[in-house]
Amino acid sequence: MNSNAIVAENLTKRYRTRVKAEGLGAGVKALFQPNYREMDAVKGISFTVQKGEMLAFIGPNGAGKSTTIKMLTGILHPTGGAMQVLGYNPVENRRELCAHIGTVFGQRSQLWLHLPPVDSFAMLGAIYGIDDAERRRRVDVLAQRFGLGEFLHTPVRKLSLGQRIRCEIAASLLYEPDILFLDEPTIGLDVVVKQAIRELILEWNREKGMTVFLTSHDPGDVEHICRRAMVIDHGDVVLDQSVQTLKESYLNRKVITVKFFRPQALPAMDGVRMECDDTQAVLTVDTRQRPIGEVMTAVTNAGGVADITVNDPPMEEIITAIFSNREARA
């Protein structure tokens, strides 16, 4: 039995875009003799994803992440290479494939904005051929797990972003896909909602063995959801390793921002870089050297804390560190 959920071999995507030169003359000339420029969005990447695996597919903006997802889901046709998703060729068998995959694009809604989620679920149930009794049972389970009960009958356009994303993910799980493609699923959400969504995805993976293919700019998503990370840049895979290794090498810093009621001095600590500014301090903690709990205790012991937040360093910083490390090694 094939244990691969996704196989990509030498996958390439070249876009052809029209180039408009400056000036009126060039504009008129372009009417009769248009100029085109070709751009490689994905340059022959190869990888496999096992069934039940949770992969983070990360990289800077324009790296080719979304293009790869679009090719794997059959939205875009590749220029070259071969791919198989659940044994289907997404180009030739898109209709068959789409019954087995779920997609959540954080910045695009797959729900019908003017309809309440319950109607969207009914339509999706019919579209995916789920009978009414089974659809109602699944909606009940999802509504309970995702806490959708209170807004199940409110038009989607009236929901908050967090509520909408919960509905989006629930909608993608309604037909129990074998692979869930998540493109920036937690963008713009608050910490509590992000955490709830991560737990739900993990739970679904544990219970149903669902494969997860995630792209995100939030290191927290990568750290909490995935076990393997693949970094892509300019259409090439530059790193493919376990999230544990990535964590030890790059996700080992936390940023604590503290606001005090009055100017406050903090004790120097090994593994902590401090930037103090009157009543605010930003502490960058190397968690390999000093546990975050110790730093939090030291800060609260200093007294006069008005507000405190703990964040991961931005994904861009982590990716920059990965690239710098590679260049240094090269």
Partner: peptide
């Protein structure tokens, strides 16, 4: 570009 995303559904 929303049309592209509708390709993901069997409809």
């Amino acid at each position: 570009g929303a049309m592209a995303y509708l390709l993901n559904r069997p409809v």
